[in-house]
């Protein structure tokens, strides 16, 4: 019998079945391993935020941040966080929420054409050990 390692969900017999979603942990399916995590609370003028990870490859990254919402008026910082990336370009305005991934760092950028440079934007990011490819 091939050896394996599994942790099944409550009520699931760990010795039977092959449905991956029945297991919290399965040798065949690597878990995303958090390399680093952080929050930011940054003035618009201070973006991009650079976070060094020094992994030497392109890791999987997830970022959420506040959005600068406007509908023809003064931009308002949202309470909720939005998933990166977004990039909107109107006739004369841009909205950017972008996370660039490099081999040894990430760069997080949030901006909007009309926003005051001292406006603070909050968000968080997760960088994983697992490479994109």
């Amino acid at each position: 019998m091939t050896q394996t390692f599994r942790v099944s969900k409550p009520g699931i017999d760990v010795t039977s079945g092959t449905v991956p979603n029945n297991y919290y942990l399965d040798l065949i399916y690597p878990l995303l391993k958090v390399h680093s995590f952080g929050t930011f609370n940054t003035n618009v003028a201070s973006f991009p935020v650079t976070v060094n990870h020094n992994l030497g490859y392109y890791p999987f990254v997830l970022t959420f941040s506040q959005f600068l919402d406007s509908n023809g008026g003064t931009p308002v910082v949202t309470n909720e966080y939005y998933q990166h990336d977004w990039f909107l370009r109107g006739a004369s305005k841009e909205w950017i929420g972008q996370t660039k991934v490099f081999e040894n760092k990430i760069e997080i950028n949030v901006s909007q054409t009309d926003i005051a440079s001292g406006t603070s934007i909050k968000g968080f990011y997760y960088i994983f050990k697992d490479p994109i490819a």
């Binding site: 390692f5 942990l25 399965d26 040798l27 399916y29 690597p30 878990l31 995303l32 391993k33 958090v34 390399h35 995590f37 050990k129 697992d130 490479p131």
Partner: peptide, 14 residues
């Protein structure tokens, strides 16, 4: 190399 691991007690997981 931690990317070669399925699980590592040193690291958080989602």
């Amino acid at each position: 190399d931690q990317k070669n691991l399925i699980f590592d007690y040193n690291l958080n997981h989602l």
